[in-house]
Design a binder for these strands. Structure first.
Length: 554
RNA sequence: UGGGCCGUAGCCAAGCGGUAAGGCAGCGGGUUUUGAUCCCGUCAUGCGAAGGUUCGAAUCCUUCCGGCCCAGCCA
């Protein structure tokens, strides 16, 4: 990252804290971590966290780990740990050293548990899950102590050992911290530290039958990795008391005392961000998979044509704060457009073709024309396009009659064909439904790169593809997945899916696109940014985002 | 209704006692062989509300209003 870019970094409260910690010498350098649970695919909300954690490490010359928070084997799998690594790297980040797993710290956690038991700060509790809930009290009433709360230390030690050895059934008992059953923080009312699960773990196999809870594992993992700034989302604000309590009561396994800071998670309009709901969309086949281009997952955005740079830029634009926010899609779309506008080669594609016959153009002649790859960037060179007696234009670009505001082809009037000649519409054929089948035009000679000499101006510019060299292609036009801004609030969020989130069109593209590489962005002029789909056979183009449109609503 | 947090423009977001940055969206105009891009201009006498302190308050104090989170052996 250049100094200029770095200087433009938006300030936020976390950077302020780091600046302070560095200037007071509290830390000589920073260590962050991105700690996903491998129980689903990463989404744009995770991207915000990834950009934050890795971005901070980059800017402050610190380190950022990738750590799988894999303490719940029943919900996790290797498929997800692989997909997550792929997504992080695709976004352009590389973790420091090896990948970390909370599960590789299981022995350390266990020793910490023993330490707590030895200090009289943890005990094995045989209350059922149901009873535990009743004993916990409510938001306004204190809880009452478990009858197992005062089991002697030596006995607890033996019990814990037996738990680990598989001497108890699942659910028969748990290890609990002994804190304060009257605490206004519910998470401090003797929280569970370990539960028994005879489940196969994707990393540790069958080595363990007791698995640590998030609150117990996370803070110690941070300490083991010498994390200085442990960043998480707002809903963990209460949990910070437990995070601190645990670290205050065990022998720190690392050299740093991590601190937790919370920022607000990303909410995006017209989509959902919870892994549970995304899972449901996939399971219920409402989308084609985690990487369906309509999904807010990183893999979906990638397949849709979003670039890593555009997602990083998006993260930069939305900033980091503690306000519950609801971000507008337009910020994300503006970020991709800015990136793609600069880098995407221009090409022409007709999504809804109608044939045009240029009656005064010689039959059988195919003319080659050099067109710029990018009109604002000559260095990108030129491409060969063709022109002949028969071409395709888009159905929406022709009207039998229209007022002056319609800057396209109108019967009896002129329009400029992008990169080619000016043509004039003479007449057209229509089928029984009134649907235009062929438009007959004449072209104005010597208008290649020149205006007509007769002074009659073209209404506007439309795009086309020469018919004989045209290559058939399919266009997948995506729109917002949901028809309401906040689908998560709906009683049944699947009932509020946008029925038009995918519209498929069959048309033609320039011959140069037959070998288009998947995921590589193109701008189909006047239509939008597209990329070839990475999964479907044949020429299938996904529309990443349309061009900014100041006309269609008129 | 116990506790933890948060309210600055339609959306995101700086600001930390010295007189409201920036981005997105919008609006007006210019350039244009993409109704795009680009360029110029415009967009909070106002910071949830009301009091108070101060020469001076979005910033400090008080009260009130609104929103989010917490009662998993999930994370």
């Amino acid at each position: 990252m250049s100094h200029a870019e770095q200087a433009e970094r938006a300030v936020n409260f976390i950077r302020n804290i780091i600046d302070e910690d560095l200037s007071t010498g509290k830390h000589a350098s920073i260590q962050t971590r991105f700690p996903p649970e491998p129980n689903g695919y990463l989404h744009i909300g995770h991207a915000k966290s990834i950009c934050l954690n890795f971005g901070l490490a980059q800017d402050y010359q610190g380190l950022c780990n990738l750590r799988f928070d894999d303490t719940n084997p029943e919900k996790e799998s290797l498929e997800y740990v692989n997909a997550i690594q792929r997504d992080v790297q695709w976004l352009g980040f590389q973790w420091a050293g090896e990948i970390r797993y909370s599960s590789s710290y299981f022995e350390t956690f266990y020793q910490a548990a023993i330490e707590l038991v030895n200090k009289g700060l943890a005990y094995v509790c045989f209350l059922s899950a149901d009873e535990t809930r009743q004993y916990r009290g409510t938001l306004t009433e204190a809880g009452k102590p478990s009858p197992y709360r005062d089991t002697p230390i030596a006995e607890n030690l033996a019990l814990l050992e037996k738990m680990r050895a598989g001497g108890f059934k699942e659910g028969e008992c748990v290890l609990r911290a002994k804190i304060d059953m009257a605490s206004p923080f519910m998470c401090m009312r003797d929280p569970t530290l370990y539960r028994i699960r005879f489940a196969h773990h994707h990393q540790t196999g069958d080595a363990w039958c007791i698995y640590p809870m998030y609150d117990f594992a996370h803070c110690i993992s941070d300490a083991i990795e010498n994390v200085t700034h442990s960043l998480c989302t707002l809903e963990f604000q209460d949990n910070r008391r437990l995070y601190d309590w645990i670290l205050d009561n065990i022998t720190l396994p690392g050299t740093s005392r991590p601190r937790q800071y919370e920022f607000s998670r990303l909410n995006l309009e017209y989509t959902v961000m919870s892994k549970r709901k995304l899972h449901q969309l996939v399971d219920d086949k409402m989308v084609s998979g985690w990487d369906d281009p309509r999904m807010p997952t990183i893999s979906g955005l990638r397949r849709r044509g979003y670039t890593p740079a555009s997602i990083r830029d998006f993260a930069e634009r939305i900033g980091v704060s503690k306000v519950d926010s609801f971000t507008s899609m337009s910020i994300l779309e503006a970020a991709v457009r800015d990136d793609l506008n600069l880098h995407a080669p221009r090409t022409m594609g007709v999504l809804d073709p109608v044939k045009v016959v240029i009656e005064n153009y010689p039959t059988g002649q195919v003319e080659s024309i050099q067109a710029p790859v990018h009109p604002q960037n000559e260095a990108m060179g030129s491409r060969e396009i063709f022109f002949s007696r028969e071409i395709y234009i888009d159905r929406a670009d022709f009207r039998e009659q229209a007022n002056k505001d319609f800057k396209r082809l109108v019967l009896g009037d002129r329009v400029r064909l992008r990169n080619a000649y000016v043509i004039e519409a003479q007449r057209f054929d229509a089928d029984a439904n009134g649907e235009v089948t062929t438009i007959y035009c004449t072209f104005v000679e010597d208008t290649l790169g020149k205006n007509p000499t007769d002074g009659k101006k073209a209404r506007g510019v439309i795009h086309f593809v020469e018919a004989s060299k045209a290559v058939a292609a399919e266009f997948y036009l995506y729109d917002r997945l949901f028809s309401v801004p906040n689908p998560a609030k709906a009683d049944d969020f699947e009932a509020v899916l946008n029925p038009d989130s995918l519209v498929i069109k069959k048309g033609f593209v320039e011959p140069g696109l037959v070998d288009a590489q998947a995921e590589k962005a193109y701008q189909f002029e006047r239509e939008g940014y597209f990329c070839r789909d990475s999964k479907q056979p044949g020429l299938v183009f996904n529309r990443t985002v349309g061009l900014r449109d100041t006309w269609s609503e008129n």
